[in-house]
Structures are given as C-alpha cells and as structure tokens.
C-alpha cells in the first residue's frame, strides 16, 4: 500500500509517527509500546473499546497528556515543539467553547490565536448551517455548537485534524451533516484526519485507514482496504481437537466452537486447504474479532509499521 506516500522520503509524508509511545497513569498503563505511522492525506479511524487508550493517544498528539516514554511526531515535528501547534486542530469529545462568546467572537478567537487562520472557510462552515453569527454559543443547539467547533477547527487550516468521538452526541441528521462537512473539507484540503469512534458503520463509510487499540496496545494498523482482505472467515467441522490446531499454519485471531462446528477468523499464511467454508469477512467482523481477543498478534500493513531498529522496546 505504498502508493499514496513516499516512505523513506521527507518525514513530512507521515502525518503521525509514534515510536515506543507509552503513558502510565497511577492506575497503570493507558497506552504502551505504541509504534505506528499514519501517512498524510488519510482519513484514519481510531477504534477500540472504552478505556483502550484512544483518548490518551489523542491527548498525547495534542500535548494535553505528557508521554511517560517514547515519542510522537506530527509531520516530522515532535509534538512538544511549538512549531507543531499550528499544524493540527483538535476537537474534543465535549467540544468545549466559551459559552458567553457569540459565534462571531468564537471565530475571532480562532483568528487571534492562529497565524494561518482562514476566516472565509470558517464563516462558510458556520453560514452553511444557518447558525446566526451573533448568537451566543451557550444558546445554540448541540448540532450548531458542533458546527461552530468544526469551523474553529477547519479555520485553523490544519494539516492534521484530530477528532475524539466527534459525532457521539449528535442526532442522526446532524451526524449526517457533520460527516458530509468533514469529508468535503478534508478532501478539499487534503487534510489528514484521525477520528476515534464507536460507530463501526461510520468508520466503514469514512475511513480508509485504521488504528485499532485494545488494552492500551495497538492491535491493527494500516489501510482498511488491506486489513480486511488479510483475513478469512473459516467455518468447518470441529471434530475433537482445538480448531486452532486444525488451522495450525495460519494465524487464528478468534475461534469459537458451536456444537460440532467452529467459526474462526484467521489470517491465512498461504492457501487455506481443508474441508472448510471460507468467506471474506466484513470490516465489522474483523474489528470485533480483534477487539474480543486481545492476545492475537497485532497486524500492521507495510506502511504502518516502523522498522525494528527504530522501535524502542521495553
């Protein structure tokens, strides 16, 4: 999947690059041994159960969380370098805005605090949602407030847009509007987007890159188009043995026995021979299998993996 970027070229080709990234809270590791790359220009879904480390990863990328170990770069610039700040925009889960500011003042905030501010784009996003410019933010509906927050994020003209469950509190109509807005703006500018979400269908529609986290570790990283075909859904007779043994040369992500039959999601290492029914899984099936079985080996598509010598292991 090396077509959309130039590995080994300018470090700016990687929107995000993590090496041995880890964050430990008092309760334990929220994120550990996290090494991956995200090529520029992709829409990346960040998937994982609650507490998997999604928000921690986004917090590390936006300098709101200090890493315990490892490093993270945005377009080749370490995140703690002030030069990284204008390159990303962040939209948190609860989309904080100053409630007493009017919409116009909120956009002025963007223009005052960001050197590359694009007022025309921000105003266009606000106007297209019929949000009155002189209304106070506190009086807006949830959908309108999200639109203003999006306008603030896009007005910054970021190269990387980080979204933490951006649609979670929206009604279906507003969700659809925001998805359309997000996709059109991102595509127009070539903005790289990282969005965490619980909505697998949302991810399937929007994302062409996936980062799957569970228990603070990366389970899968890479092109959505390559991750899914790397798996096969196998159904066969269980017999007496463990289906894992039957499928021996292949990597079994998850196997379940139902009566005399077994169902397994495997990563075939070579042709799947045997008296089995083999089917291609959906993205949702692959994700669910990986999230359920955290001991399966992680899967990286070629571009997403960082060379072994670069990885800080501990």
């Amino acid at each position: 999947m090396a077509d959309a970027f130039t590995p080994g070229g300018a470090s700016g080709a990687w929107a995000l690059e993590a090496r041995g990234l880890g964050k430990r809270y008092r309760r334990g590791w929220a994120l550990r041994d996290c090494s991956f790359r995200l090529p520029a220009g992709r829409i990346c879904g960040l998937v994982g159960p609650n507490g998997a480390g999604k928000s921690t990863l986004l917090g590390l990328a936006t300098r709101q969380v200090q890493p315990t170990e490892g490093e993270l770069q945005i377009f080749g610039v370490p995140v703690d370098d002030p030069a990284a700040m204008p390159r990303f925009a962040f939209l948190g889960q609860d989309k904080p805005l100053f409630k007493r500011f009017t919409v116009a003042e909120t956009l002025r905030l963007g223009s005052e605090l960001n050197p590359g501010w694009d007022m025309a784009a921000a105003e266009r996003i606000v106007r297209s949602g019929q949000v009155p410019m002189h209304a106070r933010v506190g009086t807006l509906s949830g959908g309108q407030r999200t639109r203003v927050a999006f306008a603030l994020a896009f007005g910054k003209r970021p190269d990387l847009l980080l979204l933490d469950e951006p649609m979670s509190d929206l009604d279906p109509l507003a969700r659809h509007d925001m998805s359309t807005l997000l996709m059109s703006e991102a595509v127009e500018r070539g903005t790289t987007v990282v969005m965490s979400s619980h909505m697998l269908s949302e991810l399937e529609d929007m994302c062409d890159y996936l980062l799957v986290l569970a228990d603070g570790r990366i389970r899968m990283a890479g092109d959505a188009d390559a991750l899914v075909p790397a798996h096969s859904l196998v159904t066969g007779l269980a017999g007496d043995g463990d289906p894992t043994d039957l499928l021996a040369p292949h990597t079994v992500v998850e196997a379940r026995v139902q009566g005399r039959q077994f169902h397994a999601l495997v990563r075939p290492n070579g042709p799947l021979s045997g008296d089995w029914v083999v089917a291609e899984p959906s993205l949702e099936e692959v994700l669910l299998a990986h999230l359920r079985s955290s001991d399966a080996p992680p899967l990286f598509t070629p571009g997403a993996r960082i060379e072994a010598e670069g990885i800080h292991t501990s």
Binding site: T62, R63, Q64, D94, L109, L113, P115, G116
Partner: peptide, 10 residues
C-alpha cells in the same frame, strides 16, 4: 474545558 480549547490553538 476551555483550557483545552485555547491550548490546542497555536
């Protein structure tokens, strides 16, 4: 949360 809002600007 406005601390987060301001400190994620530039």
């Amino acid at each position: 949360g406005t601390a987060q809002l301001v400190t994620t600007q530039s």
